[in-house]
Design a protein around this nucleic acid. Structure first.
Lengths: 225, 225
DNA sequence: ACCTGAACACCGTTCAAGT
DNA sequence: ACCTGAACACCGTTCAAGT
């Protein structure tokens, strides 16, 4: 409770931390994740040592940015849940994410590596899945989406499109829209016509460290439907 | 024509080149593309200089492997064209590629970077597109696939699934099958129900260096239908 | 407490010296 | 001609020395 004296120094450090985060987001957006940390530190106006004091490794820095962007995405998804047309809301979310990926090479590039290790990423990821699940449930209820898929299925399809968007999005922007339309076809196809192999996974089961899946949901996290 | 004397020396060099290629494919398959070239040279039993004599850069080495695998994939696709059930043949090709990606992390990881620059990759890529186009035309004629998509559309969907397979394929193998089933739904959905935005691209238009697309096919390369 | 930049380790690439 | 490994450049990370 008595942290009055610390404030001054901490605020300096906190300011540096924020500067590094902003510079990193900027540099990664422009150059991709291979950009050297030296440039980030330079643009943030701090020494390299300060960068590593706040983020023990480059991967941690990337993860921190990813957490921010995932939380923001989850918030946007929750906002879309208010929309009257649930089907349109879901597809608008997919368009939204893919559009951002087109402007920011680094966005989904980061998803590949970091997931497993970082617990903060896990939390943000769960948040995204929960919001997407809500959107999806409403879209199913509205008859806009087939009943036999889950939020993880949708997220993986989206990841695929974003990966393509990162590679070819700058060649022809319409290409991403087209891929998304195809995903839409897959999601709205009648479930009876072509049953899917396997089953939808829970967010937990995507974590490689989790045991082979006991097949029983351990704790029900209900999305307010 | 008079290359008798050279043969002896060349055969040594050629053997080294092949050893490097084999070692590289092995190492990349096991460790991904970030594996150090030093280990490749060591496993091939040559000095690092020899590796760089045959492949001016690590990217060139990766490209060489990719060309081999793409040519092989194109050959398999052409073989599938003989099948009586054209729809099944197309989807078997998709399963085949995705299955290989699951076993070899590096396979599609390489696609992202190298395409643009390397002309040999362009040739192999065109070969894949041509074979896929043939499979696709037959599947359309058989009524198994909608008429309004092209080979590039299919390839990009496949790339998306393979990207996911590379990241999560080891968590649950069935996940990849499921994603492929969803792609299948997208491909076999009736074209009338949900028209796609944009238009399908030609292989040339995927090349970022090619001009903004004159919209007129410069040279008709007919696939023997 | 926090900051800094010199120093270290690692990896892709080059090249002088060998045969 | 081709091979080799020492040497170089670059980048992530650490740490002794500053304030």
């Amino acid at each position: 409770m008595s942290e009055r004296e610390d404030r001054r120094r901490r605020s300096d450090a906190e300011r540096n931390r924020r500067r590094v985060l902003e510079a990193a987001a900027e540099v990664f957006r422009e150059q991709g994740l291979e950009a050297p940390v030296g440039e980030i530190a330079q643009r943030a106006g701090v020494g390299r040592g300060t960068l590593f004091r706040n983020f023990p490794s480059k991967a941690d820095l990337i993860a921190a940015i990813l957490v921010d962007e995932m939380s923001a995405a989850a918030a946007r998804a929750r906002a879309l849940c208010e929309r009257p047309d649930a089907g349109a809301a879901l597809f608008e979310f997919l368009d939204d994410i893919a559009g951002r990926q087109r402007a920011d090479r680094a966005l989904f590039e980061a998803v590949a590596d970091s997931f497993l290790a970082n617990p903060e990423i896990r939390l943000a990821h769960d948040e995204v899945i929960a919001a997407l699940d809500e959107l999806l449930s409403a879209a199913k209820a509205a008859g806009a989406v087939r009943a036999d898929i889950g939020a993880v299925d949708v997220l993986l399809l989206l990841k695929g499109v974003c990966e393509v968007a990162g590679t070819y999005g700058h060649v022809d922007p319409g290409l991403v829209d087209r891929q998304l339309d195809l995903v839409r076809c897959a999601l709205s196809a009648p479930a009876e016509s072509q049953p899917l192999r396997g089953r939808t996974l829970s967010a937990d089961e995507l974590d490689p460290r989790s045991p082979p899946a006991a097949h029983q949901p351990s704790r029900r996290r209900r999305a307010s439907v």
